[in-house]
Amino acid sequence: PHSSPMNPGMPPLVLELVSCDPDEEQVRGKICAYLHQEQSGRGKLDKPRPFSLLCVMADQTLFSIVEWARSCVFFKELKVGDQMRLLHNCWSELLLLDHICRQVHHGRDSSLLLITGQEVDLSTVSDAGPPLSSMVQRGQELARRLQLLQVDRREMACLKFLILFNPNVKLLENQQFVESVQEQVNGALLEYTLYSYPQCLDRFGQLILRLPEVRSLSAQAEDYLCYKHLCGEVPCNNLLIEMLHAKRS
């Protein structure tokens, strides 16, 4: 992943990973259209509970993440079996990173920006009770750290690939390929951070250090979702629930 003499510091792989990024506006439009259609199917008086609405948003965002993965360089070379194993392993991390990325751009401590463009005051979240509000706070803390680092889109694109191509996933048919992608992306991110942010000591390390935090928070979110599902509070028959069960089966 070495940069060309014409453009030192910009590994072509980094540009290629960014080019795989979805069109945010398109994704937003699709999800808003889906929610409007869903709402119009309900009676005016039948207002969905906030949490189930969040679940529908997360479900629709997950669809867009699967679409993104399918179109990604390297990923499309894998067999469907391996694609499924990688996505089963990291779907909640990608969902969380998508949320955190949005908060980094949003740049406000007192409110959350949803994928629909709606803003939710954090005080309403704290009304939801400890598990959810403490997870949201942890998410806000992660977003704050990445904001302080002024993480850019290229770095975010690399982090997404590092999460997706996890060579530790079990039963991979082509584990070597996944490992080689992980190494290439690591090398490209390192080179990019060294050249683009020379003044920032160990920027690469500071970015990579966020990944276990994303993993741990996403695991907590999965447990919470599982609990809510057992309470019958999560709309069923959707991708979210399928992915939740896939990991636990």
């Binding site: 699967v66 399918r70 469907v80 499924m84 996505l87 089963h88 399928e242 992915m243 896939a246």
Partner: peptide, 20 residues
């Protein structure tokens, strides 16, 4: 529902043919 393969939706999404 029991008969449905547990990861049917993801499998469908990854396999679907967009050209149609």
């Amino acid at each position: 529902k029991e008969g449905k393969k547990p990861q049917a939706l993801l499998h469908y999404l990854l396999n679907k043919d967009d050209s149609k």
